[in-house]
Amino acid sequence: MTDPSLPSSKVAQYTQKKATRELQEWLIQAVLFLAGFSCVATTIAIMYILISESVFFFQQISIWEFLTSTDWSPLFDPPGYGILPLVSGTLTTTLVALFVAVPMGTIAAIYLSEFASAKLREVVKPILELLAGIPTVVYGYFALLFVTPALQWLYAPMGPFLSGRFPDLFPVELSGFNMLGPGIVMGLMITPLISSISEDAMRAVPIGLREGSYAMGATRLQTALRVVFPSAISGISAAYILGISRAVGETMIVAIAAGLQPTFTFNPLESAATITAYIVQVSLGDLPYGSIEYQTIFAAGLTLVIVTLVFNIIGYFLSRRFRETY
C-alpha cells in the first residue's frame, strides 16, 4: 500500500529500490542454492565415475566370477578377478576393530555420561577428540612398528603350543604383517567416534528417567545399563554403524600394516589385503588409463561404496526403528 502523502516520484524511487533489492536477494539465494547443490553434484559425480568405469570392467569379467571367485590377482598372470579375498580381509579387520571399539567406546560413553564429574569430562573429551584427529598414516606407523611387535612378543611364548594343537588356525610365529595389529589400532581410532556419539545420545535422555530409577533404589550402574542405555539405543546403534562404516573404509592403517596380499581368510593372525588397501597398492604403480587393471580399482571402489551405503541405510533404519521421543 502506498502512502498517499508521498509524492509519486518518491514512490517510484522506492519501488525501484525494492525491485533491485528483491533481484539481489534472489540472486544471492540462487548462488547459495548452487553451493548446497554441489553436494548432490559430488554424489552424482562419484557414482558416475565408479559405475562408468566398472561397466567397462564388467564387460570383460562376468559379475558371477567377480562375486564368487576366491582368487584376486589382477596384476598376475593368469589374472583372477574374484573380490571375495578383499571382502574377507575387510570384514576381518573390521571385526577386530569392533571387538576393541564397541566395548571401549560404550564403556567410555557410559562413564562420561553417567559417572564422570563435569570437570573430568571437560578434560577427557578433548583428549578423545585429539585421538580422533590423528592422521591415519600415523596410526599405520603405530600399528606396524609398535602394536605388531608388541603382539609378536606376546604371541611368541604360546605360538609353538597353539600351532601344535591347531596347526590350521595358529602360525608358529606371528608375521610382521597381520590383520590383528591394524585391526586393534583401527579399533582405537574409532573408539572416540563411538564414544562421542553414544555419549551425546545418552545425555539426551531426560533426567527424570534417571531420577525415577534412583527413586526405585537402583545404583548408578543399574540406572545406566537398564534405563539410560535402552533409552538411548537409537543413537548408540547409529554410533556402532558409523564405526563399522568408518572401519570398512579405513585405508592407510591396513595398507601399511596388514600386508598387501589378497588371501581368502578370516583368520586375523594372517596377512591379507582389504578393498581399500588394494586400491592404494594399484595406485602406487603406474597403470595405463583404460586398462583392465586400472578399471579393477573402480570396481573395487564401487563394491566399497555399496557396502558402506548398506551399513548407512541399516543405521538409518535402526535409529528410526528404536527412536524414542521425549
Partner: peptide
C-alpha cells in the same frame, strides 16, 4: 560417510 579413498577415485 563415504570412505576417503572413494574421493581419490
Amino acid at each position: 560417510g563415504v570412505p576417503s579413498i572413494v574421493y581419490g577415485l
